[in-house]
Design a protein around this nucleic acid. Structure first.
Lengths: 197, 197
DNA sequence: TATTATAGTGACCAATTGGTCACTTGTCAA
DNA sequence: TTGACAAGTGACCAATTGGTCACTATAATA
């Protein structure tokens, strides 16, 4: 089915807001990219700020769906190798998906200028992924794949370095393969380092 | 001695650029904060961009001095407790110093809009601190305070979570004590988790 | 067919903003 | 004393930008 103009505006707004920031985005360019006149935008949204807010609504809905329930947990791995593949797969997706890349950029660059972005940033960068991996590690400890420790602590200590390398990919795409090399060795290191005994 | 107007401009520019971004900063407000007329700014810098570039020059010089040589290494700790105190002290300073807070904000929010900021961000958030802790952990391994592992890997795995919590302090200052609680328990966890045998 | 709502256009407006310029002031040296 | 230079001022300019408005076109409906 066709995508409504209202949705197309939001999609293109994400691109511009992420690349140029809220202040740096101007409605003439947004309209031009959609082959619309600027005044047409106002048929769908009342103001620049209204577009911004609608975009944040959409993002909040996304995170509520993704982190709000326990439905989106990955399959619990039965071996360290399975964990390795699963984690790497999730990382690859998150690091390469254009929409998610833009979302990260927007959250990073606007986190100090907007209270809602601030909240979303904490959810995305700190609490969201950590919660998922807490569950995964709990399960792996029960299965004897990991030494028994505080799973939440372990999740942060796994998640944060990965996150730092993904930020590197966002910032300097030319260093993506280097970053992935390091992430792979990091995951291997992590698994042996926290292996039982 | 008195601070020159040229330097005062740069100091206040850091505040505005960090809080409002490059695009969001206007020269009238910058001038007003310095009790100057806008045209007076042009007696010291040729343009808004020139102020921006001078600020980046200063920051680059700072990082070159701080991370370029091995002079600024902390004292190598002789016990895990000493490490704990040293690390916590460095973190406290870095998390509370107003200038450094502003610098972090500027690096985060402008990293995708300026190539020089991009390079500085990688240096600040990834390579700089990791290099310092690599040296520290090397020394601690030799002294038998830590299990022998790849010190660079260990540095990233120590540094990244701390960094994530400092970002939380920047973003939501109201959660600073909560963040420090978590950092303290994280450092303790880290030390026991990587203790020899 | 006439009507009405929706989507879209282009001209226009007012505020903001980076930048320029002629002019003043104060200090220091010849 | 005077001339020169650095520092500062306020008025002004032009470009950008968010927003409005009268108008058109099209499609569905009463």
């Amino acid at each position: 089915m066709e995508q409504s103009t209202k949705d197309r505006i939001l999609d293109e707004a994400l691109v511009l807001f992420a690349e140029k920031g809220y202040k740096g985005t101007n409605l003439r360019e947004l309209a031009a990219r959609l082959s619309l006149s600027k005044s047409a935008l106002y048929k769908h949204y009342d103001s620049k700020e209204a577009i911004w807010n609608a975009l944040l609504d959409k993002m909040e809905a996304y995170y509520a769906a993704r982190f709000g329930s326990m439905d989106h947990l990955p399959q619990m791995p039965d071996s360290t190798e399975e964990f390795f593949q699963m984690a790497l797969g999730m990382i690859r997706f998150t690091a390469h998906d254009p929409q998610i890349i833009l979302t990260r950029k927007l959250l990073l660059t606007e986190q100090f200028h907007d209270a809602r972005v601030c909240k979303l940033a904490t959810k995305h960068f700190l609490e969201g992924t950590a919660r998922i991996y807490t569950k995964v590690f709990e399960s792996m400890m029960e299965k004897g794949l990991l030494k028994k420790e505080d799973p939440a602590m372990l999740a942060i200590s796994f998640t944060a370095p990965i996150s730092a390398f993904i930020h590197l990919c966002d910032r300097e795409p030319g260093r993506t393969t280097e970053a992935f090399d390091k992430m792979e060795t990091y995951i291997r290191y992590f698994l042996t380092s926290h292996a039982p005994q």
